[in-house]
Design a protein around this nucleic acid. Structure first.
Lengths: 337, 337
DNA sequence: ATGAAAGCGCTAACAA
DNA sequence: TTGTTAGCGCTTTCAT
C-alpha cells in the first residue's frame, strides 16, 4: 500500500522469507538455497527493490564515499586529477565528493563537515601546502596528498617527480645549445615550485653553467605572470635565449609577450613548459612541454587511499610519477639550420 | 573508555540529560533552558562530539547531497558549471557529488546507484540530450537539466539562450560589414547546436541575406574540427570573409588553419566564437567571443533544485541565460581603417 | 540454511 | 522544558 520505496522487509514478506535472508541474497552470501535465492530475486525484481545506501552506511559504519578537496574545480590540472580519481573510485564501488576550498578557512570548514561529521571514509587533498591548510586535517584519518611535498615521509602522497621533470626540461634546452636559460617559477611557497627550481639548477650546474638569480623570476602560474616575466627580463635588458616556464600557462604568457615585443619564438627565444595543457599544440608556435599524466595521479591517489581503507598497506608512501618530453616548435636546435 | 567517536548518548550521560535534549541542542531548538543548553554545549565541546551525517540522513530520510552528472569533469565549460553548482550547494548546507558518464550505459549505472540507492536528494544533468541518456532518469525525481533543449516545458532546465546568442554573434559580424558568413556548428544532434544554427539563420535573413547550406559545416566542438572546417571551405574554393564558430575551441581551430594557409585573421577572415574560454584573450589574435557565465548556470540549476526539494516551486521552469559580446582582435570592421 | 534479536546514531511523536 | 518510546533500513551476532 505504501507508495514509498520497498524495504528489505517488504521483499521478505513477498518472498515468504525473513528479511535476513533477503540481506544475504543482496550481499551475495553463499549460504542461501538456490531455490530460496530465486524466490527472493524474483520478489526484488517484481517490487523494484534497491537497497538503501544510507541504511547500509549506517549499519556498516562506512560511507563508501571519498572526498577530494581542491583549490578549485576548473583548473585543468585539478579537474584532470579529480576525473582520474573519480573514475578509479567508481570502479571500486566508491563515490567521490569533490569540493573546492579557496582559502584555509573554507578548507577547515570543509574538513569539519566531511571528516568530523563522518560523511566520507577517506580524503584526497590537492595542493595541501599552498598555505597551511594541511594543519586542519585530523591525524589518523585516511588521507592522501596530491602535489605535496614529497620530502615528508610521514604522509601518503602522489605527485609529479618535480625535480626530475625540471631537470629534464632544462636538459632539453641545454641539448639545443642554449646557455642563457631563464626560469619562471610558480609561487615559491609551493613545494613543487621549489623542487622544479632545484631540478633546473642541477641541470645547469651539471652542464658547468652558473645559476644566475637574476635569470629566475617568480610567477603565480597565470599566463599574465609569464607575460610579466618576459617584460621584466626585457627591462633589465637581458632577454635570455631560452625560458623554462614551470607550467604551460606561464609559457603561453611568455610567448604572448614575445610576440608583442617582436621577439620570434623559437629562433630568438626558445620556450618550454610543463603540463601539456589542452590546445598546447594549437599555440603559435605549438608549445614544447613536459606532459604530465594528471588522471593517473588521481588514479594512484585513489588506489593508495583504498589500500589504506582496506588495511592492505599501512606504510606511508610517497609516489612520484614521471613526465614525458613533448617536443613541438617552441624550442629549436640553435646549432641546426 | 570507548576509543570511537562519542554519540549523542555519551554526551547526554556526561551532561546529565537525556539524549533527546542533546538532539534539541545540536538542532538549535528553542525549547531548551539556557542553563541546560550550556551544560550540553560544554559536554559537546569537552568530548569533541560531532553529529553523524549518516545517522541524520537515516533518521530524516534525506541525504543533504545533490549529484551532478556530466559527460566529463575536465572540459572547462562543464567544470565551471560544476564549480558554480558546488559553491551554491555548500552555501545551503548541501554537498555535491559530481560524476562523469561518458556513455549512456555508464549514465544508466550511475543513475541507478545515485537515485535508485537513495544516495542523493536531487540531480543535475549536464547535456542530457547528447544521446538518449535522459530516458534512464526516473520520473518524479527532483531533477534539473543544464544545457538541455529548452523547448520541452515538462522539465526544469537552465541553459544559455542559444538562439539569441547565435543571433547576436552573427549580428556582430554583419555589423562589421561581412556578407559571406560561414557557420561551424557543434554536433547537430545536440539541441544547442540546432538552436545556435537557428539564431545564425535568423540574423542573416533579417539582413536580407540567404542562408547558404554550403556555408555551414558540422563540427564536434573540438579544435581539430574547426581546423577541418576551414580546410573544407578552402577545398570548395569558397573561403568566407567571416566565420561564426559555435564554440571557442573550434574558433581556435579555424584560426590555426588560417595561419597555416596564410590567411590573415582578421583582415582576410574574421572569427567569432562562444564561451570566452580561459586564454581566449591570449590567442593570436585574441578571440572575439560570446562570453557565457557557466558558474552562474550551475548556481541557478542548484537553486532550482533546492527550490524543488523545499517544495517552494513545483512548476517546471526553463531558465535561459544571456551571453555577452566580448570584442577582441579576431573580428575587425571591414569598412573601417 | 534460515530466523530472531539487537543495534548502528540519530529524529519524531508523544507523554509527563 | 524535558524524557520516553519508537522507529529509519540495514547488518551482525547468535540461535535453531
Amino acid at each position: 500500500m505504501s507508495s514509498s520505496r520497498p524495504t528489505i522487509r517488504d521483499v521478505a514478506r513477498q518472498a515468504g522469507v525473513s528479511h535476513q535472508t533477503v540481506s544475504r541474497v543482496i550481499n551475495g552470501s553463499e549460504d542461501v538455497l538456490p531455490e530460496t535465492r530465486a524466490h527472493v530475486e524474483a520478489a526484488i525484481e517484481q517490487m523494484g527493490y534497491r537497497p538503501s545506501a544510507i541504511a547500509r552506511s549506517m549499519a556498516r559504519g562506512q560511507t563508501h564515499t571519498l572526498a577530494c578537496i581542491s583549490p578549485n574545480l576548473t583548473d585543468y590540472t585539478f579537474a584532470s586529477v579529480i576525473e582520474g580519481a573519480e573514475t578509479e573510485a567508481r570502479q571500486h564501488g566508491y563515490f567521490l565528493l569533490s569540493s573546492s576550498a579557496a582559502d584555509p578557512e573554507a578548507f577547515r570548514a570543509l574538513v569539519d563537515e566531511l571528516v568530523g561529521h563522518s560523511r566520507v571514509d577517506g580524503l584526497i587533498v590537492i595542493n595541501p601546502y599552498a598555505d597551511k591548510r594541511y594543519e586542519y586535517i585530523p591525524r589518523n584519518f585516511p588521507l592522501v596528498f596530491v602535489g605535496a611535498r614529497s620530502h615528508d615521509e610521514g604522509i601518503n602522497s602522489v605527485s609529479l617527480d618535480d625535480e626530475k621533470v625540471a631537470y629534464e626540461a632544462t636538459r632539453h634546452l641545454l641539448s639545443m645549445g642554449h646557455t642563457q636559460i631563464a626560469l619562471v617559477t610558480g609561487p615559491m611557497e609551493e613545494d613543487c615550485s621549489q623542487d622544479r627550481a632545484e631540478g633546473y639548477a642541477r641541470a645547469l650546474q651539471e652542464a658547468g653553467l652558473e645559476v644566475d638569480p637574476t635569470m629566475i623570476i617568480e610567477g603565480d602560474w597565470s599566463a599574465t605572470s609569464g607575460q610579466d616575466a618576459l617584460l621584466s627580463f626585457a627591462e633589465q635588458g637581458r632577454v635570455p635565449s631560452a625560458i623554462f616556464a614551470q607550467n604551460d600557462r606561464m609559457a603561453m604568457g611568455v610567448m604572448h609577450a614575445a610576440r608583442d615585443m617582436g621577439i620570434d619564438v623559437p629562433t630568438q627565444l626558445a620556450v618550454i613548459g610543463v603540463d601539456d595543457m589542452p590546445l598546447a599544440s594549437y599555440f603559435d608556435p605549438p608549445l614544447t612541454t613536459m606532459r604530465q599524466d594528471m588522471p593517473r595521479i588521481g588514479q594512484e591517489a585513489t588506489r593508495m587511499l583504498l589500500d589504506i581503507l582496506q588495511k592492505k598497506n599501512n606504510e606511508p608512501r610517497q609516489l612520484k610519477l614521471p613526465a614525458q618530453l613533448v617536443v613541438r616548435q617552441s624550442t629549436l636546435d640553435k646549432g641546426g639550420d
